[in-house]
Simulated assay, not measured.
Amino acid sequence: MKRWLRRRVDVVYERVLSRELSGAPTHVAVIQDGNRRYARRSGGSAHEGHRAGVETTERVLEWCQDVGVEELTLYTFSTENFDRPDEENEQLFDLLCEKLREFADADRVHDNEVCIRAIGETGMLPDRVQAAVDYAQRRTREYDRFVLNIALAYGGRSRLLEAARGVAREVESGDISPAEIDVEAIEHRLYDRPVRDVDLIIRTGGDERTSNFLPWHANGNEAAVFFCTPYWPEFSKADFLRAVRTYEHREESWRRTRARRALALLGAVGDADLPEARSIVDRFRDSLPTGERPEGRLEPPADEPDANGTVESLDSSGSTAD
């Protein structure tokens, strides 16, 4: 297909996908895989692949803001990446320094109030990278309209391990009792500033695994996952919109499953005994096929109080299995 025709088709497809979307995930996490393979295929160096990948990263940030995403996390450099050749890593560190400072000074970042944060064991990075990270964070610290997390020297298990050790030390010192350890206690110790639960993970490059990426925030929230074959420098807006559509389909399935479970419980146990189930059916009835929807609202009996604040307790797992 001629290149100009391919571009026309892509534009039309993007418009179709955009019209199909009715909502957006709040937090998207991306595993930017395939920079080096992209470079090898075209006869270039790994550094050229990483530089091409940065251009995609800048476009994805714009696409996220266009559809209403509020937080984006990029898996940029893992702890395992330290095992790569020194020359390759040094070039990547130079690129990170350049782009972090460039981005922190960009008008579009300040106009859109983008807060740049680094997550991971940044103390393992060279001094020049740490200085660039500090500069970007200081320049954008007061913003909160959009959050851009850069995962550097990152390992999901190591973060959880450090949080657990931190809690153990505080229990040993008497600063916190075992009974006080809850979800918030762990989350506060994972990162310096809060990270939202992940709604969607995107991985490019063809591999179908999440590589220990944000396990607490993604697995705990049962995030939707979108795997695609293009290398990161080739990732297109159509690919991005397809990923968002995957998230929407997962959300629709989640709502439909909860409504069906609640209806089944009402039928088996009785309406008067399950105010929470009635509330869930009323909340998610539009996600059910027309033939499965009960007629009218399932109002509680006059002498029975509403189940305010307890709707989620019926099924907090968010399972999507039909």
Rank of each mutant, 00 (worst) to 15 (best):
H110A: 08
H110T: 09
D111Q: 07
D111L: 05
N112H: 03
N112W: 07
E113K: 15
E113Y: 11
E113T: 08
E113W: 01
V114M: 02
C115L: 11
C115H: 07
I116Q: 03
I116V: 15
A118Y: 11
I119N: 00
E121T: 09
E121P: 00
T122I: 15
G123M: 03
G123D: 09
M124L: 15
M124N: 13
D127C: 03
D127G: 11
R128K: 14
V129P: 05
V129Y: 13
V129M: 08
Q130K: 11
A131Q: 04
A131N: 03
V133E: 00
V133C: 00
D134H: 09
Y135Q: 04
A136D: 07
A136I: 10
Q137I: 08
R138Q: 14
R139M: 14
R139C: 07
R141T: 10
R141D: 13
E142P: 09
E142I: 13
Y143T: 05
Y143H: 13
Y143W: 10
Y143A: 12
D144G: 12
R145F: 04
R145K: 15
R145N: 13
R145P: 03
R145I: 03
R145Y: 05
F146E: 12
F146Y: 14
V147F: 04
V147Y: 08
V147N: 05
V147Q: 09
N149R: 07
N149Y: 04
N149E: 10
N149I: 04
I150T: 05
I150E: 01
I150W: 11
L152N: 08
L152K: 02
L152G: 05
A153N: 00
A153R: 03
Y154H: 03
G155Q: 00
G155H: 10
R157M: 01
R157V: 02
R157L: 01
R157F: 10
S158F: 02
S158K: 08
S158Q: 02
R159S: 02
L160P: 01
L160Q: 02
L160M: 15
E162Q: 00
E162I: 00
E162V: 06
E162W: 08
G166I: 06
G166H: 08
G166M: 06
G166D: 06
G166C: 09
G166Q: 04
V167R: 07
V167K: 09
V167W: 06
V167Q: 04
A168Q: 06
R169A: 14
E170M: 13
V171M: 14
V171P: 03
V171A: 09
V171Q: 07
V171G: 06
E172S: 14
E172T: 14
E172A: 15
S173H: 09
S173F: 04
G174M: 11
D175T: 12
D175F: 09
D175R: 15
D175E: 15
D175N: 15
I176V: 15
I176K: 12
S177R: 11
P178E: 04
P178A: 13
A179C: 01
A179F: 04
E180L: 08
E180M: 08
E180N: 10
E180V: 11
E180K: 12
I181P: 06
D182R: 13
D182C: 12
D182N: 15
V183R: 14
V183I: 13
V183H: 12
E184H: 14
E184P: 00
E184N: 14
A185M: 14
A185D: 10
E187M: 10
E187H: 05
R189E: 02
R189V: 11
L190Q: 01
L190P: 03
L190W: 03
